[in-house]
């Protein structure tokens, strides 16, 4: 049984013409790192916020660890969340920010101190416990936000475009750090991003979304190499779209401008002689000596 199950989840905002999320079905396994990838307004953040409890699903159910959490308030869900804007409390120092969830959860002072120490070590900011958020860089603030979300030992970790506000160099190093911490703790994670590189490099599986609907779910390799819809093909990576003539669906033989090529896999939904469209990744095009079959 999956750890997180979203079944027929639908969200329609008041006065909206179209649903923000529709027919959303997804199972996430324990310890898995799943990314929601899509353009702005595709419903990925809305779905994440429904999991966190900040938005109520119009219909459908969200089950976590066998418990239907759809009607449960956000503060009862035991889900950690990292926001795009860090959302650190400016009136508290780093240590107090990290210990906030434990404090409101009624944990003892020594317990909070110990856990905060562990978290500071985890994000490698042991020396900065007394600093205030405005005294930290963006990258440091986001690491603190991550530590704060993990400190409460959540069953699920949600990250809402956590790297969008950071510059490219920090983004890359923090991306690796997030993945390494996630692997170390084995925590089930849902990550929202519009950056395909981020989604493909971090995730066990990627959920590509468009206009509130799931376009494709699969491991990064599959999403990149075998997109099932035109949207996924065009959204993930760069590619060339070519009109081709199908020669032999069984062997994947196609013809472009009178030259025959092989796709490398059977063309299941096409018949011989039919015109089809193929998406060609520039990176896989190789030049061979004349006469070599490819």
């Amino acid at each position: 049984m999956a750890f997180l199950e979203l079944t027929n989840v639908r969200k329609v905002f008041p006065n909206a013409q179209t649903p923000a999320v529709e027919d959303f079905n997804l199972n996430v396994n324990a310890g898995e790192f799943v990314s929601f990838l899509g353009p702005s307004g595709c419903g990925k953040t809305t779905t994440l916020r429904m999991i966190a409890g900040f938005e109520t699903a119009t219909s459908g159910s969200i089950v976590m660890d066998g418990r239907d959490i759809t009607p449960i308030r956000p503060n009862q869900r035991n889900i950690g969340m990292v926001f795009q804007s860090y959302a650190l409390f400016p009136n508290m120092n780093v240590a107090d920010n990290i210990g906030f969830g434990l404090k409101v959860g009624g944990k003892s002072k020594p317990e909070i101190k110990e856990r905060v120490g562990e978290m500071l070590a985890l994000i490698k900011l042991e020396e900065l416990g007394n600093r205030y958020p405005y005294q930290l860089s963006g990258g440091q603030q986001q690491r603190v936000a991550l530590a704060r979300a993990i400190a409460i030992r959540p069953q699920l970790l949600l990250l809402d475009e956590p790297l969008s506000a950071l510059d490219a160099k920090i983004r890359l190093s923090l991306r690796n750090e997030i993945r390494s911490i996630q692997r170390q703790l084995g925590i089930t994670t849902v990550y929202v991003t519009h950056d395909q590189e981020e989604a493909l490099s971090l995730s066990d599986r990627v959920v590509v979304m468009n206009r509130g609907l799931i376009e494709q779910v699969g491991p990064p390799f599959e999403i990149y190499n075998f997109p099932t819809t035109e949207f996924v093909a065009s959204f993930v990576g760069t590619l060339n779209l070519l009109k081709v003539k199908v020669i032999d669906p069984a062997t994947g033989a196609i013809q472009v401008d009178g030259q025959t090529f092989f796709t490398g896999r059977p063309l299941v939904n096409h018949a011989a002689g039919e015109t089809a469209q193929i998406a060609l990744r520039p990176g896989i095009v190789q030049s061979r000596q004349h006469g070599a079959r490819r």
Binding site: P74, N75, G80, S85, F89, F100, G101, V104, A145, A149
Partner: peptide
């Protein structure tokens, strides 16, 4: 007061 502060507090278990 940012909406995210309230949501972050709520997410961490605060009433």
């Amino acid at each position: 007061l940012k909406k995210e502060w309230r949501e972050a507090a709520e997410n961490l278990g605060a009433s």
